[in-house]
């Protein structure tokens, strides 16, 4: 029984990482129907941005939790800005081009990011100069470390903030409006370009935050770390219903739990096969996802 609770806790923990990345995927897709393939690499970029800040100013910041928050904020601004630039340079010129062109561009952006980092920092993994450690908490025989709890708390705070932003503010209303009908928004005087930029900023900043958290928690970062998590985040977004923000979080938690249990029964080496197999199965059975509404391809 204690084993069961441990599996649930592990699943929730991994799921919260997936959720932060999946949110950005889902948000961008919801608004401009673009599958931002490079999104996982922005997570990686966040981890390296944090790493750079730490290497330069580790002394000034000291160690510990507060330093982590500061670094995370800096990395979020950095990756957010990068997301805006990426949209401007690579995606905006192609907004009216066939979907295939944009997808290929996104693959190119992903490649350029990964190997740009590989060339800059070298292909070997880097060790994060600070780590979060500390004691652990026992819950009914299962263990969860304080570091894990802190990470999950940060993730929840970020998600709640995003949800409030999208549902309660004027900017959020503009985002929702554009996802419904971009042309009508344009006619109503909404600055569509600016809202799209803002969406990219938010999505990329969340991914960047997740990257820093992963770096600090696991302690090791490398230039390919975004590849698998990008795939998993997409899977989560599809499970939840792509374009639906609460769905993305739900999908991420479902995926985290599924993987946790899948690994327990099949062994770690089958984890990715299990996750992607589930994606294919899900697309066959319920392509709109758990919370997604029917999407018809508009002509």
């Amino acid at each position: 029984m204690d084993h069961l609770i441990q599996l649930i806790l592990d699943g929730l923990f991994v799921g919260s990482f997936y959720a932060l990345v999946a949110l950005g995927y889902s948000m961008v897709y919801g608004i401009i129907k673009l599958l931002n393939f490079a999104h996982g690499d922005i997570y990686m970029l966040g981890a390296f941005a944090g790493f750079t800040v730490l290497s330069v100013g580790a002394g000034a910041l000291g160690g510990g939790f507060l330093a982590l928050i500061v670094i995370m904020a800096l990395a979020m601004v950095g990756t957010g800005a990068f997301g805006v630039v990426l949209e401007r340079v690579a995606y905006r010129p192609l907004r009216n081009a066939p979907r295939l062109s944009v997808l290929i561009t996104a693959v190119g952006a992903s490649f350029a990011l990964e190997y740009g980092i590989a060339v800059t920092f070298g292909p070997n993994p880097q060790v994060y100069p600070i780590g979060v450690s500390g004691g652990a908490l026992g819950i009914a025989g299962a263990r969860i470390t304080y570091a894990q709890l802190a990470m999950m708390a940060i993730a929840v705070v970020l998600m709640v903030a995003l949800d409030a932003l999208v549902r309660k503010t004027r900017a959020g209303r503009a985002m929702r409006a554009i996802s419904l009908d971009p042309k009508a928004c344009l006619l109503m005087g909404v600055n569509v370009d600016r809202v799209i930029s803002r969406t990219f900023f938010l999505g990329s900043a969340l991914a960047g935050a997740a990257g820093v958290m992963a770096g600090a928690y696991y302690g090791k970062i490398d230039f390919l770390m975004g590849f698998v998590i990008g795939l998993k985040a997409f899977t989560a977004a599809v499970i939840g219903g792509i374009g639906n923000l609460r769905g993305a979080v739900l999908g991420a938690i479902v995926l985290g739990l599924l993987e946790s249990f899948g690994v327990a029964f099949l062994g770690s080496q089958w984890r990715d096969v299990f996750a992607f197999g589930f994606l294919i199965l899900f697309l066959t059975v319920r392509p709109t996802g758990l919370l997604g509404e029917r999407v018809t391809e508009r002509v």
Binding site: T105, S110, A118
Partner: peptide, 20 residues
């Protein structure tokens, strides 16, 4: 090798934007 992939990635973007 790593330079090669970096250049490939940039090329993909450039080709799609300027010469699809």
């Amino acid at each position: 090798q790593n330079w090669r992939y970096l250049i490939f990635g940039l090329l993909l973007i450039v080709i799609m934007v300027f010469r699809p």
